[in-house]
Design a protein around this nucleic acid. Structure first.
Lengths: 178, 178
DNA sequence: CAATACCTACCAACTGATAGGTAGATGCAG
DNA sequence: CTGCATCTACCTATCAGTTGGTAGGTATTG
């Protein structure tokens, strides 16, 4: 793993834990064993780092989406939920884009653009899946599922109660079955 | 309005915009026209301020919930959504508890407890409403609606697109009708 | 030789928080 | 009614620590 990747790895962990604002170049430097000035060598400014972070996160997520078999609707939805479920580690991390999205108003525009793209990618993947399986209101339902999973993660994280996320996910999927 | 209230007002605006971590005592002091040391007089520490902030937000929200007529299901749900809709001002603010919830992992425990209570209050109100109207899976659906609205706010805010929130809200309500 | 990937050293700005002072209102004993 | 004490709500000044970012040096590699 290159130093650049190690920095991104450390940054992702920190942002998903305490937020973008609360993550500092010095923290990252300590995490990966170099000096903060050297972090600036790889990512000149904080917005640069933030953009790279979300871009990488979205790419990795896209790869996992592509691995989901879309033939069976229910199985595909479960797999989709599974990706979000994996992102939720109580007391440790939630989805990077839930954090970035909640902070969006105070964030640099290049970071927001990438976060927006992440949500759009998820919605598009779901919409295609639902449409292929003849589900009505595919676009609205796709938006609902993404929103519910992101929101469910936040509520569950606050309450330190995984069951809330699972209930939300189940209810969201039930909406599709209709 | 007392100075304490003016500070809470200013703090709420800032936190809902840029997050709890990014709000400083000096910003608030400037906002209300006193010095930062005087803000500490009213709220000794930042966790104290955070707790008071979420408590007040939840109380005000509770008052609005109590004003909703629960006789007609659809009308009550629309009114509920309306409260969230009002909290979303693109490029300016989202729900205070969406922000606090997303930052929860790095936040003081007393603040998290209040945020958790806010979500629970909303869920309980919805669950009662749904149960009264004989809706199945009332608890899970209540959690779904809260999660979807909070998440929908975040996605819409990131995308600067109100329509996403409205679609999510509509789809969530359609789930109840089932 | 020059690019890469680090380093030391530094900067101004900002952070939450504290110590200690003060003007004005309130309370209450003589 | 007077006079002293206390309380409220601010103030100035300051602190140590942290922040993003820069300038300029250095060792290693192709």
């Amino acid at each position: 793993m290159t130093m650049k990747e190690k920095i991104l790895e450390a940054a992702e962990k920190r942002v998903r834990g305490v937020g973008f604002a609360e993550m500092s170049f010095r923290d990252l430097a300590r995490d990966v064993g170099i000096k903060s000035a050297s972090v600036h060598y790889h990512f000149p400014t904080k917005p640069d780092l933030g953009e790279a972070l979300v871009t990488r996160y979205a790419e990795q997520f896209k790869e996992e989406l592509d691995r989901i078999d879309q033939i069976e609707l229910r199985a595909a939805l479960d797999a989709f939920v599974g990706l979000y479920s994996k992102a939720l580690v109580l007391g440790e991390s939630i989805c990077l884009c839930a954090v970035m999205g909640a902070e969006a108003i105070g964030l640099p525009e290049n970071v927001n653009a990438r976060t927006k793209a992440f949500f759009e990618m998820n919605k598009a993947w779901l919409e295609t899946l639902l449409t292929e399986h003849g589900v009505e209101h595919a676009a609205e339902t796709a938006n609902l599922i993404v929103a519910a999973l992101e929101g469910g993660m936040i509520v569950a994280s606050t309450s330190k109660n995984r069951a809330i996320f699972e209930q939300v996910a189940e209810a969201a999927i039930r909406c599709v079955a209709n």
